[in-house]
């Protein structure tokens, strides 16, 4: 798996949230550390796009496209602050 970062997922995130998201601050539900979305670790080789906490590597967000629909799992993210 090739590790990228939040910048690589910025276009997809813009599709989901309809705004620029890399400057947003997310808080990991596992370790509680906050990170700019641009700095999270991103893996795009699989069937979906997986965003992981840069501190503890827990999954903070998962986005999967199924035909025309985007499925977004946000359970790994405690909160997100839009900036």
């Amino acid at each position: 798996m090739e590790r990228l970062d939040g910048n690589a997922a910025a276009g997809l995130l813009q599709e989901v949230f309809a705004r620029e998201m890399t400057t947003a601050m997310e808080t990991c539900a596992s370790c509680g550390r906050a990170s700019a979305v641009g700095a999270v670790h991103v893996y795009m080789d699989g069937p979906g796009t997986v965003l992981r906490c840069p501190t503890c590597e827990a999954v903070v967000m998962c986005i999967v496209r199924v035909r025309e629909n985007l499925h977004v799992d946000l359970s790994g993210m405690r909160r997100i602050e839009l900036r």
Binding site: N7, E20, T22, A36, G38
Partner: peptide, 9 residues
Amino acid sequence: LRGPIGGWF
């Protein structure tokens, strides 16, 4: 093309 994209870097 889609963009410009990104605001952090």
